[in-house]
């Protein structure tokens, strides 16, 4: 099985470890991974801020970059949601075609590869924040949890108010920074209350926002992308 990795602009520039983990995880499961280098940003920041026209070239670029692949996999629920939910409305045949073949990582693992036990080892206590776009737009449901529950050594702690937004929301984080920060602080407080050492998410934008608060408040938590947990093995553990 061959799949194109849509790493996303945030992961490319700021969180390459998530991209690397995704590559290793998929390869370990027998998936042949390609990284079409023409890819860049899906256009979500522009689109969600009301700049539809400025989004169009990015939609076309993304569509061209991933044309011809049966599967496009991305370790980001919100970018997957952008492509899947909004690309068809741009009236570009290639964009519509890519939309139908784009999968968020946990969807791809569970629905396409057909695994929940990916052979990972991660001896830490973890609490999981399901980001809104994955939860509500993609309907990821129990997939991330099932994947995490199958990880050896991992102890999953229930996050209170898990389905509440962390407050990132793209440009919302700066346009309404007070409300955004208040939401993030509440989320971090809830995560700390679980006693888990790792705050896991499937969207690094949310983790960037939460991590910024964790760092500022010196909270005893390490935000880690789900892909990095799933990529971790006994032989090559994540530290």
């Amino acid at each position: 099985m061959r799949a194109a990795l849509f790493v996303t602009c945030v992961n490319d520039a700021v969180y390459p470890s998530t991209g690397i983990a995704t590559v290793r995880l998929l390869e370990r499961l027998g998936v042949e991974v390609d990284f079409p280098e023409a890819q860049s940003c899906c256009g979500q920041p522009q689109f969600n801020t009301g700049y539809r026209r400025e989004t169009e070239p990015l939609v076309r670029r993304t569509a061209r970059a991933f044309a011809g692949y049966d599967y496009v996999v991305t370790p980001s629920g919100s970018c997957a949601a952008m492509v899947r939910q909004h690309y068809p409305a741009f009236g570009d045949a290639a964009a519509t075609a890519v939309a139908a073949r784009t999968y968020e990582l946990t969807e791809f693992l569970v629905d396409v590869v057909g695994v929940t036990d990916v052979g990972a080892y991660f001896p830490h206590t973890v609490t999981y924040h399901p980001s809104c776009h994955g939860l509500r737009m993609l309907g990821l449901g129990e997939r991330p949890r099932r994947l995490l529950e199958a990880v050896r050594g991992l102890e999953l702690r229930e996050l209170p108010g898990a389905d509440e937004c962390c407050g990132f929301g793209g440009t919302f984080a700066v346009k309404n920074s007070d409300v955004s920060a208040a939401m993030g602080q509440d989320k971090v407080r809830n995560a700390v209350s679980t006693g888990a050492g790792v705050l896991c998410g499937a969207d690094n934008s949310c983790l960037m926002h939460l991590g910024g608060i964790v760092s500022r408040e010196d909270a005893p938590l390490r935000p880690v992308h789900l892909a990095e947990i799933l990529a971790s093995t006994e032989e090559e553990p994540w530290s």
Binding site: Y15, P16, S17, V174, K175, H209, G212, I213, S215, R216
Partner: peptide, 12 residues
């Protein structure tokens, strides 16, 4: 607007 309450991520 970002850094009053949040640190910026370090770049890789």
């Amino acid at each position: 607007a970002w850094t009053n309450t949040r640190d910026l991520p370090k770049l890789p």
